[in-house]
Simulated assay, not measured.
Amino acid sequence: MCGNNMSVPLLAEAVTVSGVEKETAAVTAFSLFSVRHGWADTLSGIQLPHVKFICPHAPSIPVTLNMKSMMPAWFDLVGLSPDSPEDESGIKKAAESIKAIIEHEAKNGIPPNRIILGGFSQGGALSLYTALTCQHQLAGVVALSCWLPLHKSFPLASSGNKNLPILQCHGEMDVMIPVQFGAMTSEKLKCLVNPHNITFKTYPGLPHSSCPQEMAAVKEFIEKHLPRI
């Protein structure tokens, strides 16, 4: 490795699941209140030999929704409805941290068009916002059980990546982030990127969680958009 991970703060503590072949692509994945190792374990089950998984750890911040208690989170959460006030500065700061990882990987041989951003809940939200505002065309986004942050700032905030492939998945019994929010997000995304590039899958009986069928869909998406070179 010819880069210095210490120059990118999120990479210093990230869990990386290396490919077993020459790495020609990367998936950077985030969880809500990121628990790095659990997410890394889940992803290792769907890994491709030429793909590296990078699982950064969210910093500890006071979260309003959790009575201002300190906990790992990518940005503050005031509420979980489409009209809740949002932590604009925190969202933008987190997105810049993710863009720094993209730049780092590019300098070390994996170009942005071979990088997928993905995540669950707040992590998926951050992935969507980062990819849509990134100056680079990425390989795609996996957005699980989430929403589009700062949705009212789009399409002005969008960098114009109309061909960005997006896989959205949502449990139909999600009470934390109801599936209707996912559907509203999907409709908004169709105004920002080519509607044919958006796949929205829902899973009956699934709460705010993942399932094997969802992970199979994620693997299929990664295989399609990060093929072996």
Rank of each mutant, 00 (worst) to 15 (best):
Y129Q: 02
T64F: 10
S145Q: 06
V17N: 09
I46D: 06
E103W: 09
I98S: 01
E86L: 07
A100D: 14
P56Q: 03
L65E: 12
P72S: 09
I46E: 07
T130Y: 01
E88H: 10
S186I: 08
N197F: 14
P227D: 04
A143I: 12
S81R: 12
V27A: 05
H136C: 10
I116S: 03
D41W: 04
S97W: 09
S186H: 11
M215N: 14
A216W: 14
L164A: 03
V175M: 15
L156Y: 06
T199S: 04
I222P: 00
N108K: 11
E21H: 12
F154R: 04
V179Q: 07
D87E: 09
A100T: 06
L65M: 15
W74Q: 00
S81W: 06
K107R: 15
C169H: 00
H136P: 02
K152W: 11
E88V: 14
Q168E: 00
G140P: 12
G118E: 02
P207T: 10
Q135N: 14
M70A: 08
E223G: 13
L65Q: 12
L144A: 12
L10A: 02
L32Y: 14
M71Q: 14
L80Q: 06
R114P: 01
L10W: 10
A58K: 10
A95H: 05
I222S: 02
G182S: 04
S159M: 08
I177Y: 05
H57C: 13
G119N: 10
E23N: 08
Q122E: 03
C146K: 01
I198N: 02
W39R: 06
E103C: 04
I102H: 07
M184I: 11
K190A: 12
H170K: 08
M1H: 15
E223L: 14
V179P: 08
L167A: 03
K99M: 13
L132S: 02
V141T: 02
I177C: 11
K68Y: 14
N108M: 09
L144H: 07
A131S: 04
E88F: 07
K52P: 08
V193Q: 02
F33N: 13
V142R: 00
A73L: 05
F221I: 07
D41N: 13
T185L: 05
K162I: 13
G140V: 14
N108F: 02
E23I: 05
G140C: 11
